[in-house]
Design a protein around this nucleic acid. Structure first.
Lengths: 210, 210
DNA sequence: GCATGTTGTAAACATCTGCTGACTTGGTGA
DNA sequence: TCACCAAGTCAGCAGATGTTTACAACATGC
């Protein structure tokens, strides 16, 4: 545990750099993402993060100004994650599989628990604004796939349904990580796909007002 | 604000009792429920709770042993809330309206944000067990309404779908309270009902395996 | 009145938390 | 070689946090 206090991967074939600002910055970011996602903002201490990263506490202030600064940096990572989860120009047919794969964590670099950062408030106004904007724009992306356009006659109705679908996604991630609810927690993308397909179809694919 | 530091409702026609153990206990419980639901366990301090209840901090330890004890007491309230949200013998037809009404907070004594307590971990093992059991049993209730029985041939498939539906409920409450996402946040039960009906139908009302 | 148990108050405690400042260590260019 | 600066360490501060302890105010039974 205390054998290599500096870097997680001590063996580095060509250049085992010991003093690497970008490297330790990344170590801190990774550790913080895990901690914040698992325990929330107030439930995570800077010493927790530093220990998990194997890095001195003071470096958090150096590289990210403050705990809030570090949280914001984590947040943009989560924003990126969500952006890549479903492409901006996705069609309604592609939505269920994209969601199923990213929720199950089998996407290429997908880390589903990062979505939780978007739900964990830090109390910081700036961070909260990022969270809100991200969730909002993603809901619009989903609604757009369902035919929504700004100023659409019953745009509110479609948007509401898109947001309900989005809520399902967040709820699944939350239930999986928060409670070990089975069979949901260990469901793979192939398990999640059928219900998600039915759900998206029912919510977003109806021709006109009922 | 500091006019009546003792009880929330100063005017009490017959007997404005000042020394009322059960009363102050309840004041603490109510304040704690609000605080814990809004800011999570670690984000809430005992002094916050005591101040909001207009009660001395030390009484938390007296009446609930510890902060964790108070959280557990809040949790059983949330369990009760969830139990009353949907009756144990509900039929599949009654589920959507029950959910819509309780999510929108228009039920008789329904406080939807209390559901959040079931998602906010305190790190306490006992409390976490309560949370898990409650969510699990509620998922079973939902699955039962969809025809699930213990040992059912493809019970896992039905249960998974029930849990996805449950996830939607939690996700909606979370999005409403965490982000001010519109139109979801200000949607009333009449707005929520149609999508919930479609969702429940699609997830839980299919005759056989596809 | 007065002893007794209950309810509420105030202050302090030990620890934790975020952050800072002075310092050491290591690499690099002149 | 050595000055210089970036990277990392260490100890500590000031405030917050959960909890406890000693005490005061109130009600009730005798």
């Amino acid at each position: 545990m205390a054998t290599t206090s500096l870097h997680a991967s001590p063996e580095h074939p060509a250049g085992p750099r010991r003093r690497d600002a970008a490297g330790t910055r990344q170590l801190l970011l990774d550790a913080a993402r895990r901690r914040f996602a698992a325990h929330g903002y107030t439930g995570t201490t800077v010493r927790d993060i530093a220990d998990e990263a194997g890095v001195n506490v003071a470096l958090i202030s150096r590289y990210f100004t403050s705990k809030e600064g570090l949280f914001e940096a984590c947040l943009v990572g989560a924003v990126d994650e969500l952006s890549h989860a479903v492409a901006p120009d996705v069609t309604l047919d592609g939505v269920p599989s994209a969601i199923a794969e990213h929720l199950a964590g089998t996407g290429v670099g997908s880390r589903p628990d990062q979505f939780l950062l978007l739900l964990r408030s830090s109390g910081d106004e700036q961070a909260d604004r990022i969270r809100r904007n991200t969730v909002h724009s993603f809901a619009e992306r989903l609604a757009t796939a369902a035919g929504w356009r700004p100023g659409h006659p019953d745009g509110d109705r479609i948007m509401l349904r898109a947001q309900v679908a989005l809520a399902t996604g967040f709820g699944i991630v939350l239930l999986r990580s928060s409670t070990g609810l089975e069979p949901l927690s260990s469901a793979g993308p192939q398990d999640l796909l059928p219900p998600m397909r039915d759900l998206i179809d029912a919510l977003l694919r109806e021709p006109g007002p009922r």
